[in-house]
Design a protein around this nucleic acid. Sequence first.
RNA 1: GCAAGUGUGGCGGAACUGGUAGACGCAUCAGACUCAAAAUCUGACGGUUAAUAGCCUUGUGGGUUCGAUUCCCAUCACUUGCACCA
Length: 800
Amino acid sequence: MYDFKRIEKKWQNIWEKNKTFKTGTDKSKKKFYGLVEFPYPSGAGMHIGHVKAYSGLEVISRKRRMEGYNVLFPIGFDAFGLPTENYAIKTKTHPRKVTDKNIEVFTKQLKQIGFSFDYDRCVDTTDEKYYKWTQWIFLKMFDNGLAFRDKTLVNYCPSCRVVLSNEDSQGGKCDICHSQVIQKEKDVWYLRITEYADKLLEGLKEVDYLPNIKTQQENWIGKSTGAFVNFKIKDTKESLKVYTTRPDTLYGATFMVIAPEHPLVETLKDKITNYDEIINYKEEAKKKTEFERVELQKDKTGVEIKGIKAIDPVNDKEIPVFVADYVMMGYGTGAIMAVPAHDQRDYDFAKKFGVDIIEVIKGGDISKEAYTGDGEMINSGELNGITNKKEAILKMIEFLQKNKIGEKAIQFKMKDWAFNRQRYWGEPIPIVHCDHCGDVGVPYEELPLRLPKVENFEVGTDGESPLAKMSDFVNCKCPKCGRDAKRETDTMPQWAGSSWYFLRYIDPHNDNELASMEELKYWLPVDWYNGGMEHVTRHVIYSRFWHHFLYDIGVVPVSEPYAKRTAQGLVLGPDGDKMSKSKGNVIDPLDVVNEYGADTLRAYILFMGEYSLECPWNENGIKGVSRFLERIYNYKDKLNDKKGYSEKLESIINKTIKKVSNDYENMKFNTAISALMIMLNEYDKQDSITHEDYKILLTLLNPIAPHITEELNETVLHNKEISTFSWPTYDESKCVDENVQIACSVNGKLRATIDVSVNTSKEELLSLAKEQENVKRFIEGKEIVKEIVVPNKIVNIVVK
RNA sequence: GCAAGUGUGGCGGAACUGGUAGACGCAUCAGACUCAAAAUCUGACGGUUAAUAGCCUUGUGGGUUCGAUUCCCAUCACUUGCACCA
C-alpha cells in the first residue's frame, strides 16, 4: 500500500513552494485560458460535484502546460448571497467573517485535492476592490440607458422579503426558502437584456458550445417572427393589437382573449355590460402568480366581455372578446387572436365556452382536436389553395401591410432582468435618489460604494433592505445639484458578481481599471469554460450580455467571452438519487481523500462514466481505480535497464498515447483511463519493462493522478518533475496492428472469425472465409446472391 | 404543452464515418498462495444450452440495408430546462 497521505502532502507543498502552476507571463507563447464556474463558499465545504466540475479542465490544463502553453487556470469565490447572510443572522456573526472563514476552508480543500489553480489570482466578489468594478459596470449600464427603474407587478417572497426574478421563482416558489411567491407592485431595477437579445442569438453562431447548450440558450431567448394585427372594436374608436406567429390562420380567428390587466377593460368600461364580473375576475387573477396562471392548463378560466365585439380585419366578421388569465400582459401585446381549429389551447377554450371553430387548413379532423400540421388553405379568401405554410404567412403579412391593418414583427421570449434585492449581503446599487434630479449615479471616483459595517443586518419587517435603516448611509447629497438626497438601499443579485469575474482573473490586482486592455487582448476569449447545465440559461446568458455591453463601450476586445462551453453531469448519490442532506446520501470528497487519497478520488470521478452525463456514486467502483494506482506503484520492482520502449510494447504504447490524448480533448476521461488500464495489463504480461515504458504511463496518467505519478517519477526514475515534461507524441505508423480479426458472416449472421495480416486482399479474404467449416455449413447447396468484403473488417456472404 | 437529453448484462459503463454488442472496471463463482482470513495472482462470467453447434438479446413496435446500439417512423419510461409565449 502506497502512503498517499505522505506523498500527496509532499507534492502539494512542493507545488505551493515553487509556484509550479503560476500563470505564465511570456506573451510570445501561445495561451490557454481554462475556466471553471467559481464556487459559492458555503459553510458545508466542498461538495463532490465541485470535484467533478473542476477535474475536467484540471486535466486539460495540466496537459496544456506540457504542450507548451501559457495556462491561465484560476479559481475564485462567488461569495455574496443569501445562504451566508441567513447563516450570519442565525449565528449572529458578520457575513464578512463567515465568508472569510469559508473561503479559507475551501481553498485548503481545493489544495488537498491537488487542483493546479493559480491561487495567487483568487478573486472574491465580496472584496470591495472587486465589487468596485461590479458597481462601475452597473453605472456604465445606467449611463447607457440599460439600467432603469420601473413600478411593476413582481414576484415577491413574503418570507425572504425579497423581490425575485422569474428565473428565481420557478414553480411559484422562492428559490431559496421555497415558500409561496406572491404578486406585488414594487419599484424594480431592470437591466435591459432584451436590447441584446439579437446579439446574444447571433453570437451563438461564432462559438463552440455543446449543441444542447446552444439550443437551450436559443429557446430561452426565443426569437419568433410573426405579425402585429389590429382588430377594431365594433362601434368604438378603439382597436386591439395582437401579436401572432400564425397570421396565415387569420380567417380562422373566432374570438379574442385579453389579459385581465389589459387597459382596454378600463377604456371601454362604459360599454361593457358585465364590468363587475370582469373586475372580479381580474382580482382573482391578481392572487395567482404567473406560474399558477400558466400551470392550470387543464381547466381554462375566462369571462366573456359582454357588450363589445371585435372585427376580424380580413373578413369583417364580428367575434367575441374574452378575458382570461392564461394571457399575460408581459408577453406580446397582452391580447391574442384565437384560432381554435389550429391551436389546441384555443380549441379547448372554444369547446368550453361554445365558440365557433372554423377550419382553414385541411388535413386534420377538427371535430376531435385542433390540427397544427401543414395542409391546403381553405375558407381563407385569397390564401385558398396555398399548401406551404411559409408562403401563406408571407402572403398574409404582405396583405396586412398593404391594407395597413398589420405589420411584420419580431418578438423575443426573454424578459428584462430584475436586478435589485432587499438584502444586506450584496453589492450596493450606486444610485442616489434626488427630488430634483431624479435617479443620479454615484460619481465614478467615489466607487466603491462600500457596504456599511453594521452590527444588525437583519431584514426589517417592512421588506426593505437593511441598509434602509442606516441613516448615515441613506442620507447624502445629490452628486448633481448638491441638495439633500437619499441613496438607493437595495443591493444587486448574486448573478452580478459572477457576470464578469473571468475578466478579473486576467488582471486581478489592477486598481485603475477592471483589467488592462493589454492583458485582456492576450487572454480573451476564455478558451474553454466548463460548468453545470443548470447555469446555461441564467449565468451564462447574463454574463454574455454584460460582456457584449463591455465590448460595445470598448472595455473588452472581443464580443463573445467564451469560445467553448461544456457541461459536466451530476454526481448522484449511491442510491441513484440527487445527493441531498435530507436523503442522507451525500458523499464528502474529503472523506474519500482521507480513505483512498486525492489521486484515487480524481481518477474515480473521471472513470465512473461519461463526463457530461449524470452518474451514481459507487463505493465499490472506487476500489477498482484504487487497485489500478496501487498496481502502478508496485511496478518499481519490475524495471530493467534496457533503453527505449520494449519492442513488444511499442504498438500498445503508441496507440495508448494517441487514444489518451484524443480522449482528454473530448472529455472522454473514462475511456482514457480504461486505455491506460489496458496498457498496464499489457505491461503485466512482460517479465520486465523499461524505464521509458514506465515513464510514458506515468506521464499520460499525470494530469489525472499528479501526486503518485510525480512521486514515482522522482523516486524510481530519478527524473525532474513530470510537470516540466513535454506531452508525449506518437508514431502513427506504429499504431496499426499487424494482424486483424475478420468477421465472417452469412446473411449478416456471424459464423466464424479469421486471423489475417492487415490489408489482406478482398479476394483472399473471401476465399479464406469460404474455407471456414462453419461458413461452409451455411452456404453449402445454396445460391450465393451477393458477396460483401470490407477489408480489415468483415466478409458477408448472402445466400438464398 | 414545447424543447433538449437518456434508455445496452447483477451494477457503472464501452462500441470509430452502419461492419465480431458487452471494452475497462465492480460484484459474483472457481482455483492458487495461506493453519486460516484479508490482500494478491489465475480462470469463468448476457440469457438459454451437454455443447468451443444453434437460438434469443442494446426500452417497445415497425422500416431502410447484405448488415442497425448506430439511420428513419411510431410508441413507452425517466431526467433536465422553459412554459397557456400567441
